[in-house]
Amino acid sequence: MAPRSRPPRDAAATRSMARRRRRRRALAALALTGALIAGTAYGAWRYIDENEYLLDEHCEAVVAGETQRLSPAQAYSAAFLSASAAERGLPPEAALHAIAISLQETDLELREDEGELGERVLFARGVGSWAGEGSAEGTPIDSAGFYDLLEERAAAEDVDEDEDSEDEDAVVWEPDMPLDEASEALLRPHNPQFYPEHRSRAETFLSPLAGQSEASLTCTLSQLEDEIPSPDPQGVSEELVALLPAALEIPSTEYEGDEEDEEAEDFDPEPIPEGIVDLEGSSESGIVTVTPPENSELLDEGYSMDWMLAHWAVASAREYGIQTVELDSRMWDRDAAGWTDSSREDVAENTVRIGFDRDWDEE
């Protein structure tokens, strides 16, 4: 019996089936490609996120709707200039002018550091064109020299008009004077018209750094071990004692012998910070607790010491490996890069607690 022959397939139907198979294969290939791309993108994102390659380290101040940014190094310098003005009993406007002038002249970055706090070079060298023809007197370039001249020019206002004085023609520095005029009074070397450009940023950062606004300065910082300094609670303690001894009313040792002895001239008083700046533990387990006086006789009324100290610590976080800063019911956390409410009960009122442990336990 001859085999039954199959009827011939419809050519149109065969082509349609082939197209469907090709379409399914194409869709499967596209789905696989999409999955591979998504997996690769997710893996790359996780790698970048964990290694913080795209992290923009910065410090930010938000005051009265105004937001301004500085680098961590700039914020540290601004905090230093503000605290230095407070220590001298100068009004906050002195710090405002110092920060704005430094922004213009050195971008608020440390040029030289000789070890002593007052010798930090944050200003430009040069002589202002208004200093007089043939004048060889350079402008102060370190923080101590800057504030020395500012105090001298501020005191010039009190000089008796009838009293003969070499400074009777000097321009007087006043807290409320515009920045261009302040730059002339302080013999700054750049064109006076440039300095006012930096007032807004300086003013916004001064508010938290002088303690005038609460929880208004924060820093976004790396946590990579090879990019951050080791925790240094002792360094924080030593800098605070050296930077603000008068404002914190830190007593010093006294010479116990006869003041007329030769040894009395060489006696170097040592600060006694116990009860004011206390250090407990070391490295990551270290805690620095700062208890400022309630009413400092030296401090200008424009400052609030507790929030000035808290914001100083935030601005110094990258320098010293600080992880947390607490004041009253608020806490700055380096991981969160912001201020949050704290329920910790062991922090005394108006006391600043500075921590160095990333794995802090609020309870």
Rank of each mutant, 00 (worst) to 15 (best):
R6H: 08
P7V: 13
P8L: 15
R9S: 08
D10E: 12
A13M: 09
R15Q: 15
S16W: 12
A18I: 12
A18L: 15
R19V: 14
R22L: 15
R22Y: 11
A26R: 15
A29L: 14
L32S: 13
L36W: 13
I37M: 15
A38Y: 12
G43N: 05
A44R: 04
I48R: 04
I48F: 08
L54E: 08
L55Y: 02
L55K: 03
L55S: 02
D56M: 05
E66P: 00
T67I: 13
R69M: 03
S71C: 00
S71M: 01
P72H: 01
Q74S: 06
Y76R: 10
Y76Q: 09
Y76I: 00
Y76C: 03
S77C: 14
F80Q: 03
F80H: 07
F80I: 04
A83T: 12
R88I: 12
P92E: 11
A95C: 05
A98I: 11
T106F: 08
E109K: 14
R111N: 10
E112N: 10
D113E: 03
E119V: 06
V121A: 03
V121K: 10
V121C: 02
L122S: 08
L122F: 11
L122T: 07
R125C: 06
S129C: 02
G132N: 10
G132L: 13
S135N: 14
T139W: 02
S143G: 02
A144L: 11
F146P: 10
F146W: 11
Y147A: 12
D148R: 13
L149Q: 12
L150Q: 11
L150E: 04
E152F: 03
A154Q: 12
V159D: 08
S165T: 12
E168N: 10
E168G: 01
V171I: 15
D176I: 01
P178N: 04
A182N: 03
L187A: 14
H190M: 06
N191H: 06
N191T: 05
P192C: 08
Y195E: 03
H198W: 14
H198L: 05
A202Y: 02
P208Q: 09
S213K: 09
E214S: 11
C219S: 01
I228D: 02
P229G: 09
P229S: 14
P233H: 06
E238F: 05
V241W: 04
L243V: 09
L244C: 05
A247I: 09
L248D: 07
L248N: 04
S252A: 15
S252Q: 12
E262F: 13
E270Q: 15
E274R: 06
G275S: 07
S283L: 14
E284D: 10
G286T: 12
T291E: 00
P292D: 00
E294Q: 09
N295M: 05
S304N: 14
L309M: 09
L309K: 07
E319W: 09
I322K: 10
Q323M: 13
T324R: 13
T324Y: 13
V325M: 01
D328W: 01
W332M: 02
D333C: 07
R334Q: 10
A336N: 02
G338E: 05
V347S: 08
N350A: 11
N350Y: 02
G355N: 07
D357S: 13
W360P: 00
